[in-house]
Amino acid sequence: MSPENYLYLAALLFTLGACGVLLRRNAIVVFMCVELMLNAANLALVTFSRMHGNLDGQIMAFFVMVVAAAEVVVGLAIIVTVYRSRHSASVDDASLMKL
């Protein structure tokens, strides 16, 4: 088996995650889909690392994880705050960007 298969899997998962972001309205699920995309990217990075024989890819994946963790913390805090004031976790309800 070629390690490229990992890349294909990563691509598929990434696309799935992206579609989830676009289709789901629950902000938490949207967030989970973003996590899925990040994980797919991580898989690709790890695979690259292996293909190229150095650890830089893994370092990148590590940083991605750190950033993702930070992002999750802040993002969930925002969701909780929004839910408190609007009683809804739907991303469509916050359509205030329109005049």
């Binding site: 992206a18 972001v21 676009l22 289709l23 469509d92 359509s95 205030l96 960007m97 329109k98």
Partner: peptide, 13 residues
């Protein structure tokens, strides 16, 4: 510009 974040996300995507 309909104000829906998901719609914007489609554009970005």
């Amino acid at each position: 510009q309909n104000g829906f974040a998901r719609s914007y996300a489609v554009s970005m995507f």
